[in-house]
Write a protein that binds this DNA or RNA. Structure first.
Length: 469
DNA sequence: TTTTGAGTTGTTCGA
DNA sequence: GTCGAACAACTCAAA
């Protein structure tokens, strides 16, 4: 076979639009072989997740469909990528393998292994941008030459970076070379995983683009006002598509209209890049606190309380609604993620890593950098320089402020459906007569609060104060 | 080097 | 209900 063959290694860039690696391969090579590897180290590793893998398999199927529509196909490997790619390079005579650069700790180690094996096969790995809004995310530096640790100055610098052009999807692809087999998309069960998510979002570039079109149509303009209300579908819900790269964050950014809503949303896209930037420069964050003074802090190992949190039976309606939404949909509204995160780490004094793991297991959009960054932030051990006492959320206040009509809580905690609005944030205050009248007896139909928030707050301040000293 | 201003999305208390 | 102040003084980034 001719040396004019290139491989394109897909990872979490499962799209054709605005794909620099794919475009570069097609521009310079006659034959291009797209490859995706189902890597057991990822699928069965510490971030194993049935719901998210189910979504990913749909993304892979969608990508293969789009490639086939354009005359190409997708090779689906079941072995580690270093082995699959080296073998394919030998088989096809490819001397170049294109991929999208990934800043995550796992991905960087994996790319190192791939590079080595490819070298032995006489091929070279070429990493192109495509994961972030800016190309040189790792190189963004403060005036002193350090990586950023505070969002606002990062945002300022990030906003000033010149962006690359958005690339169109290729119109046509060459067929696979003779003898190269495409391989099928396995079922979730065949991977030994299962998902019990109800009405999961449909994975793939096609569904992602439809959702993007709908969001750009109108909701983006109201984003600044609606994104904090969990009962309203005011967020973009693009996170799973962004995680698997069904959508290019660069393209989304380029297509945003002007205005307050779009600006607020753009800021959220910057948070994604910020978390990736921080994890890139502090890969140890995946396991330990960014702020060293909080390392070695003592956490509670109360398994019963942790289970109550996971299953949404803490006795705090907004917390329980959020945790049940996560169980049911594989997704949780952002505002509520903060409330349940604060509750776990501050009220229950349970290690943020336990919450991080649970989220990664359940979230369809679970992304190591974002999840880790946000957990560290809400646990007050990460990039947020504000003292802990400013981040102990009051679940009752939050419910009154962000779900004033109780629409969200009633949707996910049906046993509270007939509780009068005045008691919905603190159902334990219901007089007995009201409890039996609304069919919600506390301690029987809905749990007593598992901690007293005011007391837990004082204890959390003492814990964090002691650790900071 | 020193100084200055600011820090995602808070809470509680008391007037 | 609404408002401002206090929380307690720390770290980061830029001038």
């Amino acid at each position: 076979m001719s040396a004019r063959t290139a491989l394109v290694w897909f990872t979490r860039d499962l799209r054709l639009h605005d794909h620099p690696a794919l475009t570069a391969a097609l521009d310079t090579h006659e034959r291009v072989v797209p490859v995706f590897c189902l890597d057991d180290r990822l699928l069965r590793g510490r971030h194993e997740s049935g719901p998210r893998t189910a979504f990913m398999l749909e993304c892979v199927g969608d990508l293969r469909g789009s490639l086939r529509e354009r005359g190409g196909d997708l090779v689906i490997g079941r072995e580690p990528p270093e082995r699959v790619l080296a073998e394919l390079a030998r088989e096809t005579g490819a001397t170049e393998v294109y991929c999208t650069a990934d800043s995550g700790p796992f991905a960087r180690r994996r790319a190192g292994r791939v590079r080595e094996e490819l070298a032995a096969a006489g091929a070279e790995l070429r990493a192109k941008p495509g994961l972030h809004a800016v190309d040189d995310l790792g190189r963004l530096r403060t005036g002193a030459g350090d990586p950023y640790r505070v969002f606002s100055p990062f945002h300022r610098a990030w906003s000033q970076v010149t962006r690359r052009e958005v690339l169109p999807a290729p119109a046509a692809l060459p067929p696979l070379p003779a003898g190269v087999r495409s391989g099928g998309v396995p079922s979730l069960a065949a991977l030994g995983l299962e998902s019990d998510v109800e009405e999961p979002p449909r994975g793939g570039e096609g569904p992602g683009r439809s959702r993007l079109e709908r969001f750009l149509e109108a909701p983006v303009r109201a984003y600044a006002d609606a994104n904090d209300l969990p009962a309203v579908d005011g967020t973009s819900r693009l996170s799973p598509y962004l995680h698997f790269g069904c959508l290019s964050v660069r393209e989304i950014e380029a297509r945003l209209p002007r205005g307050k809503g779009a600006e607020a949303f753009h800021r959220q896209l910057c948070w994604r890049d910020f978390h990736h930037h921080v994890l890139l420069h502090h890969p140890g964050n995946a396991r330990e606190e960014l702020q060293s003074r909080y390392r070695g802090m003592e956490w509670s190992d109360d398994e019963e309380r942790f289970a109550a949190w996971c299953e949404g039976r803490t006795g705090y309606p907004l917390v329980d609604a959020g945790m049940r939404q996560l169980l049911r949909e594989g997704w949780m509204h952002n505002r509520v993620r903060l409330v349940v995160g604060s509750f776990l780490t501050k009220d229950l004094a349970i290690d943020w890593r336990a919450g991080e793991r649970w989220f990664m297991r359940r979230l369809v959009d679970g992304d190591e950098a974002n999840n880790n960054g946000n957990w560290q932030w809400i646990a007050s051990v990460g990039t947020d320089p504000q003292p802990a006492y400013r981040r102990i959320y009051n679940p009752t206040r939050h419910q009154e402020r962000y779900d004033p009509d109780g629409e969200y809580v009633r949707r996910y905690v049906p046993e509270l459906r007939d509780v009068p609005g005045e008691f919905l944030a603190e159902p334990w205050r219901m007089p007995e007569a009201v409890q039996s009248e609304s069919g919600c007896v506390i301690g029987r139909d809905y749990p007593e609060p598992i901690v007293d928030h005011a007391e837990a707050r004082r204890a959390a301040l003492a814990r964090y104060g002691a650790a900071a000293r």
